[in-house]
């Protein structure tokens, strides 16, 4: 039985699937010491099986569900003819194999690049730029419900505004980081460093839980130590 969590591989230790799962787990861990044939086998299995897994998943999800059932729908629904557009672009992509007209494969590519650029431009502009600026437009001085000033929160707000402004100064490309502007950029880097250090420290714990999960599987589910 597992010590901490119930997981997908929940069966008796005699099970052949469980045995393989444990072997593969150990094989991947062996890479930490150095590259070795056991790791290479695990890697080869992983690459082959997962590539096949995604090929099948894409086939059923995208070609069968989205395309085929879209253009040849069940009775009663009207077919989505425009989906053929995707198929045609996909087919043009395959022309890449040909040496002579392989350049046509650039059409679907440029279609994708154009669409991604347009889509992301608006997406990022709204969700990143506008929303973040709007969230920062807050009163610096924080009051308690009895109208006394909360100094600590006020200081926190001040730090947030200072950090956003100086952080942006750091990113300026067309102005040399000199003088007052340079000081601003310098403070900006400090904020970025705090951000990176804090985020790093904060994630350590969740990374440890991943290892705990694996060892729990090895000792508990597989070896049945507890």
């Amino acid at each position: 039985m597992s010590l901490i969590l119930a997981r997908k591989e929940k069966r008796s230790s005699m099970d052949i699937g469980m045995f393989f799962a444990a072997l593969l787990t150990l094989g991947i861990f062996s890479f930490l010491y150095k590259d070795n044939p056991v790791y290479k086998v695990c890697e080869a299995i992983f690459v082959g099986v997962s590539a096949g897994f995604w090929a099948i998943t894409y086939f059923f999800d995208n070609i069968h569900k989205k395309f085929w059932l879209g253009v040849f729908p069940q009775e009663g629904d009207s077919p989505d003819y425009w989906l053929w557009g995707g198929a045609i672009l996909g087919f043009l992509m395959l022309l890449r194999i040909s040496n002579k007209i392989g350049w046509i494969a650039r059409w679907p590519l440029s279609f994708i690049v154009g669409a991604t650029a347009g889509l992301y431009m608006m997406l990022y502009f709204v969700s990143n730029a506008l929303n973040q600026v709007a969230d920062t437009m807050m009163p610096i001085v924080a009051y308690a419900s009895d109208n006394s000033v909360l100094w600590l929160d006020t200081f926190g707000n001040f730090i947030v505004v200072l950090g956003v402004v100086t952080g942006l100064i750091y990113f300026f490309f067309s102005k040399e980081h000199k003088g007052l502007f340079g000081t601003g950029a310098q403070v900006g880097t400090w904020f970025l460093m705090i951000t990176f250090g804090a985020s790093f420290g904060y994630t350590v714990m969740s990374r440890m839980s991943l290892l705990i999960g694996r060892l729990d599987f090895l000792f508990g589910d597989w070896l049945g130590l507890f």
Binding site: N128, A129, L162, G163, V164, T195, Y202
Partner: peptide, 17 residues
């Protein structure tokens, strides 16, 4: 996490956009 880290994250995100 709530103050300087938040500020840095925001500056990065605005820059990215």
């Amino acid at each position: 996490m709530n103050s300087p880290n938040l500020a840095g994250q925001r500056a990065i995100m605005i820059g990215i956009s």
